[in-house]
């Protein structure tokens, strides 16, 4: 299907049709931050106060929260727990950096020998409409990790529709087969040359802004440079000096995939819970006997950079970073990945 134009007047109708059989989440502007919010058709008017924030940067919450939930019961004894059948969902207004993050998680949870059926169920039952990011902020650096502020055909593995805000409405570009069906539900007309040109101009403005904010690409041999500095504690300590070990960067990170399984006694057996974990936590790598290869914080700080920008790129041919800038935004010490990698 070609790129379609959906006039403002028909948008509510389309959203209504999308949310008829699925729970729809949209980015809402609350104070000065974007947060995912659930559109609840049962309580019309509930969300009227929260303006849709399609033209802003990504939501504060990492998109992984929808699929790899912060806390989840995953096993029990006696008995056997199977993943519950997930409901259908639409994420309306994710960003291209969210798509990159989901790609990292797909590689971790669905493309290894063992597949996470909890993740798969949620992911396969969620359709994603990716809105352009027309005004990247100074914290954004998707252009340094091979990303763009908008989705293209290359993103069809994780995105279903690319949405661009243009004068008088939205341009909708189906990316996946499911996206074709979504767009088919809308009362659209083929996009005009002028509308396509406007979309392109807006996208190039955003890309230019990113290039101005982040003019220098990371060195192509960054993975090797990081590995070479594995024992350069002085370098990593200097950059870690302002870290207060709050783990906020790792909790806000949409690509961080680490989790902890812990059991608690229940009746005559146990209940197993899976929670997000962070490699900055002191006990993260500690073994049962008490030895800890990363007892010092500087080793844990290094591990984060090694994982995201050395090991993952070497292994999976992409950094485990979407350039979303959440880590910098939440950091109390204002530690900037860009600065560290520029000096590595």
């Amino acid at each position: 299907m070609s790129i379609q134009f959906l006039a403002q007047s028909s948008q509510s109708e389309w959203i209504e049709s999308l949310s008829r059989d699925a729970t729809l989440f949209f980015p809402a502007l609350t104070k000065d931050q974007v947060h995912w919010q659930c559109l609840d058709p049962a309580t019309p008017g509930k969300d009227d106060d929260a303006p849709w924030a399609l033209g802003h940067i990504r939501a504060a919450e990492p998109v992984k929260s929808f699929f790899f939930t912060p806390r989840e019961k995953v096993a029990e004894m006696p008995g056997k727990l199977e993943p519950a059948a997930p409901g259908k969902r639409v994420l309306f207004g994710a960003k291209a950096c969210d798509i990159v993050a989901l790609r990292v998680h797909r590689k971790m949870y669905l493309e290894q020998e063992f597949k996470d059926e909890f993740y798969r169920g949620r992911r396969e039952n969620t359709l994603i409409i990716v809105a352009d990011c027309p005004v990247p902020e100074d914290s954004c650096f998707c252009n340094l990790v091979h990303g763009r502020p908008y989705a293209t055909d290359d993103d069809r593995d994780e995105g279903d529709v690319a949405l661009s805000v243009v004068e008088g409405g939205w341009l909708l570009e189906p990316l996946s087969d499911a996206g074709d069906k979504l767009v088919a539900l809308a009362r659209t007309t083929p996009a005009t040359e002028a509308q396509l040109a406007a979309r392109e101009a807006s996208r190039q403005t955003a890309a230019k802004r990113l290039a101005e904010t982040n003019p220098k690409q990371f060195a192509p041999d960054t993975p090797a440079r990081i590995w070479k500095r594995v024992q350069d504690d002085a370098f990593w300590s200097r950059h870690a000096a302002d870290c207060v070990e709050c783990y906020g960067c790792l909790m806000a990170c949409p690509t961080c995939y680490c989790f902890l399984l812990y059991d608690k006694a229940k009746d005559q057996g146990m209940e197993r819970t899976k929670v997000w974990d962070a490699c900055y936590i002191a006990a993260y790598a500690r073994v049962g006997g008490g030895a800890n290869p990363r007892a010092e914080f500087v080793k844990r700080f290094y591990n984060r950079f090694f994982c995201k920008f050395s090991h993952f790129p070497t292994w999976q041919k992409m950094p485990a970073c979407s350039g979303c800038g959440r880590c910098y935004k939440v950091c109390m010490g204002k530690i900037d990945i860009r600065k560290v990698l520029a000096e590595v």
Binding site: F114, D116, D277
Partner: peptide, 13 residues
């Protein structure tokens, strides 16, 4: 000897 937690190559420990 490392902290093998999930056994699946997923959890990172």
């Amino acid at each position: 000897e490392t902290n093998m937690s999930c056994g699946l190559g997923h959890c990172g420990h």
